[in-house]
């Protein structure tokens, strides 16, 4: 087991280095010039200003030299300075990432907590009403456009019924909870701010449902298919012949085998939730990475884009690592 983990970690580190190289190259080779985006039409037409500006940001150096600078910085934990905000990219990311991580994680847990039991129930009561309801719900979740869903949710539960708070991470007049992580739920517990916790949680409800909608659908369908397959295996019949209770058969024998494809999908889904919250964050005025990405891309802010991409790809790698480890936990045949 330890060897397996060691091997995976080594592989992940190797992949991260490779990814940084590829990301840097792609970002610097795509056509598009930040000059125009940053300086405006008038200044951009003055070659002297442009040249000075380029020299300032190191854009006049040859590519390999820029890559060298980037790599040296990277080794010191420095992702460079954002062209748009003039702040270290790492600081920017540190500021925006917790909001996204919190939202994506809650959305992810929501998808698992709803999707897996629903999928199990749909498989066990195949073609029953639960199965039909689960199918309808999945279809809705997967096919409803995010922005539409977001506006509908806001309109109904905030505007209409007033059950949920409005956009943002927290009540605009309240102080954000103090704490080391930037994750409001954890920080509020850390600082014993009970009201802050309630407020943050309430603000998370609508956006996380919107963000999770598609993932819930996918996880439900995958769980259902995997469970149906697993319930048809011979060992399930053997368990019946043992006289085990039906729930013991489903949970102890069928489920662990069915979880393997669900874990695969779950890992992918979590990474996607982290990287793909742009729409939801925009509608819910969520100060997260999604919005930061959007503004940086619009400004052709290369250091920021590279930094974000690097963070996202490392996240993917970490999630992948987690997936691999869960395989090993679930399936003894993988542990070698």
């Amino acid at each position: 087991m330890a060897r397996y983990i060691g091997k995976r970690l080594l592989l992940a580190a190797l992949m991260a280095v490779l990814a940084s190289c590829v990301i840097f190259l792609i970002a610097n080779l795509v056509p598009g010039d930040p000059v125009l985006a940053q300086l405006g039409d008038v200044a951009a037409s003055d070659p002297a200003i442009v040249a000075r500006w380029r020299a300032k940001w190191g854009l006049d150096l040859p590519l390999w030299e820029r890559y060298g600078i980037f790599l040296t910085g990277l080794l010191h934990g420095d992702l460079g300075i954002s062209i748009a905000t003039h702040r270290p990219v790492l600081d920017d990311i540190r500021q925006y990432a917790p909001a996204t991580i919190e939202l994506a994680t809650i959305a992810f847990l929501l998808s698992l907590v709803i999707g897996i039991p629903l999928g199990i129930a749909a498989a066990v009561r195949r073609d029953g009403w639960i199965d039909s309801a689960a199918r309808a719900l999945s279809l809705l979740g997967v096919s409803a456009p995010t922005f539409w869903l977001a506006f509908m949710m806001l309109a109904i539960f905030y505007g209409g019924l007033g059950w949920a708070p409005g956009p943002g991470r927290i009540d605009p007049i309240a102080f954000p909870p103090e704490g080391p992580t930037g994750l409001f739920l954890i920080d509020s517990i850390w600082s014993g701010d009970w009201e802050g916790f309630q407020d943050s949680l309430a603000h998370l409800v609508l956006p996380s449902i919107v963000l999770a909608a598609a993932t819930i659908g996918l996880i439900t369908r995958t769980t259902r298919a995997a469970m149906l397959d697993s319930l048809q295996q011979d060992y399930v019949r053997v368990s019946r012949a043992k006289g085990l209770h039906e729930w013991a058969i489903i949970l102890r024998h069928a489920l662990p085998n069915a979880l393997v494809p669900v874990v695969t999908l779950g890992g992918l889904a979590y990474a996607n939730l982290l990287a793909g919250a742009v729409m939801t964050e925009t509608v819910f005025a969520w100060p997260g990475l999604g919005r930061y990405t959007f503004t940086s891309a619009a400004a052709l802010d290369f250091p920021a884009i590279v930094g974000i991409t690097l963070v996202v790809s490392i996240t993917f790698l970490l999630v992948n690592l987690a997936v691999d480890l869960s395989y090993a936990l679930l399936d003894p045949r993988v542990r070698r």
């Binding site: 011979d234 060992y235 006289g243 662990p256």
Partner: peptide, 25 residues
């Protein structure tokens, strides 16, 4: 009743031992 009887007083052995055992237990 069936559950209490099966595996207790009446048992069954199947053809394919390769698939009859749960791989993860």
């Amino acid at each position: 009743e069936l559950r209490a009887w099966r595996g207790d007083q009446a048992a069954m052995v199947f053809q394919d031992p390769m698939t009859g055992l749960n791989p993860v237990l």
